[in-house]
């Protein structure tokens, strides 16, 4: 049942369509405008990992842990509201056990500190993640070097790293491969690129890049704007 929950989220569908999902050692990014639901969608991706009993570090460059945890609680409650009490209790226990929240507030984020944090988690409490979620990195100002450092972390620590990237309504830049701002100059560093687009009928999750594979039409899915569960 918990496995089923992992399947209905946006990631489950993408993993089916692109053969292998993101995979350890790779970077993925989710592009959307403000208020469309980047954080919610990333948390869905995170929850599908957690429901599979994988370990995950959620890194927020914007929100304090309390707020991040609140988002997880709201979204997981939505997903589990039809389950019975014992299953909900299992899931509730699974999340804090397999997830660590790291917040870097007031521009205090440094790659060096992230590396130290990850090393502390591994050495001091034997918490070795399979996935990192990085929410709130300013893609309009981030240097390619920083992203390469993340790539290095993904390779050496054998984790997959998911980012959120904020696009702007008034910046329509797009490169020849169809990757929009703000990832149009750094798309070569990412193995999977997703875009969240709101429309009147719901929110569409589009797969823009998939490890260099051809993108099948069913990889574009429609999500329920409230629950982010795949509707079509």
């Amino acid at each position: 049942m918990i496995q089923d929950l992992a399947e209905v989220g946006p990631l489950g569908v993408l993993e089916r369509s692109s053969h292998q999902g993101l995979g350890k050692g790779h970077l993925g990014v989710l592009i959307a405008r403000a208020g469309v639901g980047k954080t919610a969608c990333l948390i869905h991706i995170a929850l599908s990992k957690l429901f599979r009993n994988e370990k995950l570090v959620h890194i927020s460059l914007e929100n304090a842990p309390e707020k991040v945890n609140f988002y997880y609680n709201v979204i997981s409650s939505d997903l589990t509201k039809y389950l019975d009490m014992a299953q909900v209790a299992n899931i509730k226990a699974l999340i804090p056990r397999n997830r660590m929240i790291l917040s870097f507030l007031n521009q205090s984020f440094q790659i060096r500190r992230l590396r130290e944090n990850l090393a502390n988690l591994a050495e001091r409490i034997e918490f070795v993640p399979d996935t990192l979620i990085v929410d709130g990195l300013d893609f309009s100002n981030v240097s390619e070097d920083i992203l390469k450092e993340f790539q290095e972390i993904a390779r050496t620590s054998q984790v997959e790293i998911w980012f959120s990237a904020l696009s702007h309504k008034h910046i329509a830049d797009m490169n020849e491969r169809g990757i929009p701002y703000p990832c149009n100059h750094v798309d070569h560093l990412f193995s999977i690129i997703l875009q969240l687009e709101p429309s009147q009928s719901g929110i569409f999750l589009k797969l823009l890049k998939d490890h260099g594979n051809l993108i099948p039409p069913e990889a574009h899915v429609q999500l329920d704007p409230k629950t982010f569960i795949v509707t079509a």
């Binding site: 304090a64 660590m100 917040s103 500190r113 409490i125 918490f127």
Partner: peptide, 21 residues
């Protein structure tokens, strides 16, 4: 940070988050 993590871990603690400011 590392020392504090160890001290909590040794006390059967479950670390929920670390926040740098």
């Amino acid at each position: 940070q590392g020392n504090v993590l160890t001290s909590i871990n040794q006390r059967r603690g479950l670390i929920m988050s670390a926040s740098e400011d």
